[in-house]
C-alpha cells in the first residue's frame, strides 16, 4: 500500500486494455482513414453505430452512479479511457457527450450526440450531428465553416452558452485525449525513425532525430503525470496545469512527429496531420493556454503566503 501513487491499479489497467481492444477492433487505422475519405465527400459526421457501441461499453456513463444506470467510476478511470480515445483519434464530441450523461437523455447510452459551447467565440464543433448542446436550451442554427480538421466539422453560431459548470471536467478529459494523441505521436515517430534509412542507417540513429523523439517523450510523460494527478485530486489548478501541459505535448508532439517523417509527414496520406489538427482543435476547447496560465498565476499569488500546498 502506498499512499502517493499514480500507477493505475490492476482494475484500471484492465479497463484501459478493454477500451484499447474495443477501439483497435472498431476504430483502427482503416476506419480512421475511411472516415477521412468520407468526410471529403459528404462532410464529417458522427458514426452513430460507433457512438452506441461506445455507450454500451460504458464510455459515456462511466462516472454516472450505478443507481442511475451508470458504471459508478471516477475521473481516474475516465482519463485512462479518454487517453485511449485520443490515441485512436476517435472523432465526435466525446467529452461533451460524456459530461451530458445523466443530464441529456440518451447521452449515457450513446443514443444521443451532445456537443458543447466549449470553444471561445462563435464556433461550435459537431453541430450538424448534435441532438443537444451543453449550455444551451436548444440546438442553435449555425453556418458551416471550412474546418482545419477534416474530422471536426465547425459551425458559426450567433448564440452563446454557459458551460462553466462543466469546465474543469471538460478540460481534464480533453487533456486526457491530448495525452493519448501525444503518446501515439511518440510511437509513430519512433517507429518511422527506426525504419526509414538514409546515409546507410536508420534516421533514428542520428542524434538530431533522437533528441526530437526524446523531447517528445519528456513532454508526454510530464503531461501524463499532470493529467493523472489532476484526475485524482480534482484540484482546479492541477486541472489547468494538466490541460496546459497536455495541449503542448500533443501539439508539439505532432509537430515533431511531422518533422521526423520528413516529406511523408507533409502528405495527406500520413496520419500525422490528423493528430496535429485535432490537437489544435482540443487546445482551443474548454480552457486555452492563456486561460490556464492566468488561472495558475492567480493560484500562485493566492498560495504565495503559504508557500505551496502540501502533498
Amino acid at each position: 500500500m502506498r499512499a502517493v501513487d499514480f500507477q493505475p491499479t490492476e482494475d484500471q489497467q484492465h479497463l484501459r486494455a478493454g477500451v484499447r481492444g474495443l477501439l483497435a477492433g472498431r476504430y483502427g487505422r482503416e476506419a480512421l482513414r475511411a472516415s477521412v475519405d468520407a468526410s471529403a465527400e459528404a462532410g464529417a459526421g458522427v458514426d452513430r453505430a460507433l457512438w452506441r457501441e461506445l455507450g454500451e461499453a460504458g464510455f459515456f456513463a462511466l462516472r454516472l452512479p450505478e443507481a442511475e444506470g451508470g458504471v459508478g467510476l471516477g475521473l481516474p478511470e475516465a482519463v485512462l479511457v479518454f487517453e485511449e480515445a485520443g490515441r485512436a483519434l476517435v472523432p465526435g464530441p466525446l467529452v461533451a457527450t460524456h459530461l451530458a450523461a445523466g443530464v441529456v437523455p440518451g447521452a449515457a447510452a450513446g443514443t444521443a450526440v451532445v456537443t458543447a459551447f466549449d470553444l471561445d467565440g462563435p464556433l461550435v464543433a459537431h453541430l450538424g450531428d448534435a441532438d443537444a448542446v451543453l449550455g444551451a436550451a436548444a440546438v442553435p442554427a449555425g453556418e458551416p465553416v471550412r474546418s482545419v480538421d477534416p474530422l471536426t466539422p465547425l459551425h458559426r453560431v450567433a448564440a452563446v452558452g454557459d458551460v462553466s459548470a462543466y469546465r474543469d471536467a471538460g478540460a481534464l478529459l480533453t487533456a486526457a485525449l491530448q495525452l493519448g494523441s501525444a503518446l501515439r505521436t511518440v510511437e509513430l515517430a519512433v517507429r518511422y525513425a527506426g525504419e526509414r534509412e538514409q546515409f546507410g542507417q536508420p534516421i533514428g540513429a542520428f542524434q538530431a532525430v533522437k533528441h526530437l523523439c526524446a523531447r517528445m517523450l519528456v513532454r508526454a510523460e510530464v503531461a501524463r503525470t499532470a493529467v493523472y494527478a489532476a484526475a485524482v485530486t480534482g484540484d482546479p489548478g492541477e486541472v489547468a496545469a494538466a490541460k496546459l501541459l497536455a495541449d503542448e505535448a500533443a501539439v508539439l508532439g505532432a509537430r515533431d512527429c511531422l518533422q521526423v517523417h520528413g516529406g511523408m509527414g507533409f502528405t495527406w496520406e500520413a496520419d500525422v496531420h490528423l493528430h496535429l489538427k485535432r490537437a489544435w482543435v482540443r487546445a482551443e476547447q474548454w480552457r486555452t493556454a492563456a486561460q490556464a496560465e492566468e488561472l495558475l498565476a492567480g493560484e500562485l499569488l493566492g498560495s504565495a503566503g503559504s508557500a505551496g500546498s502540501a502533498g
Binding site: V222, A223, T225, A226, A229, G237, E238, A240, A241, A242, L244, L245, A292, E293, E294, L295, L296, A297, G298, E299, L300
Partner: peptide, 10 residues
Amino acid sequence: LGRLYGEFGA
C-alpha cells in the same frame, strides 16, 4: 509565472 507554477506542480 503561472505556467511555471503548473510545470513545477507536475
